[in-house]
Amino acid sequence: MGSTAKLYLYIVEHLDTELGPWSKLEYLAIAEESNAAGSAFCLSSVPPTLELPRELQEVPGLRIETAGVETFLADEKERVCLLDPSAKKDLSPEDGDLFDVFLFGGILGDDPPRDRTSELRNKGFEGRRLGPKQMTTDTAVRVARMVIQDKS
């Protein structure tokens, strides 16, 4: 007798024209940890001209999309939760019942922040925040997965 666990998808919208060594390491960590947790990971808005490193291409369960999330999930925005530092509500375990796709901007490091997440917010995705502290992308996905899947 098997249980049917809900499959969650974590998406990082790649908002840069290249892939630096730090981002590569973050994406590898997200892909490997998501796969180990029984969830899926997608990199979206990957420029067709961007050649991803072999070790990233070979991670089981990694989905690569050249289109932006607003295109390939255009008719399913209600499934998507945007992790947004400007959101009014914090992410809670109950959000795992409302959403099965969690969207991250993959943008960090501006001080002061330029609110580049607004590019995704303005596309109509409902937002939740992970708290007041800025996190690396892999840490943000890890924390969201702990809240949603581990209910902690």
Results as ranks from 00 to 15, higher is better:
residue 63 R to W: 01
residue 91 L to M: 08
residue 147 V to H: 05
residue 90 D to M: 07
residue 5 A to D: 10
residue 64 I to S: 07
residue 81 C to K: 02
residue 62 L to P: 03
residue 62 L to H: 10
residue 116 R to E: 13
residue 145 R to N: 03
residue 114 R to M: 12
residue 74 A to P: 00
residue 30 I to G: 13
residue 115 D to Y: 13
residue 110 D to L: 10
residue 34 S to W: 08
residue 126 E to K: 15
residue 64 I to W: 12
residue 129 R to Q: 08
residue 89 K to A: 12
residue 119 E to R: 12
residue 127 G to Q: 07
residue 69 V to C: 13
residue 122 N to H: 12
residue 94 E to A: 07
residue 66 T to Q: 14
residue 98 L to W: 04
residue 119 E to Y: 10
residue 138 D to L: 10
residue 123 K to T: 03
residue 56 L to K: 09
residue 53 P to K: 08
residue 27 Y to G: 01
residue 4 T to S: 14
residue 116 R to H: 12
residue 37 A to V: 06
residue 48 P to F: 06
residue 114 R to P: 05
residue 34 S to F: 03
residue 14 H to E: 11
residue 112 P to L: 06
residue 58 E to N: 11
residue 64 I to L: 09
residue 126 E to Q: 12
residue 12 V to D: 14
residue 18 E to T: 11
residue 50 L to V: 03
residue 52 L to F: 07
residue 108 L to H: 09
residue 32 E to S: 12
residue 70 E to T: 01
residue 103 L to M: 07
residue 73 L to S: 05
residue 94 E to V: 05
residue 133 K to G: 14
residue 124 G to K: 06
residue 13 E to A: 13
residue 99 F to A: 04
residue 113 P to A: 14
residue 3 S to T: 07
residue 140 A to L: 04
residue 68 G to D: 11
residue 67 A to I: 04
residue 58 E to Q: 09
residue 152 S to H: 13
residue 92 S to M: 11
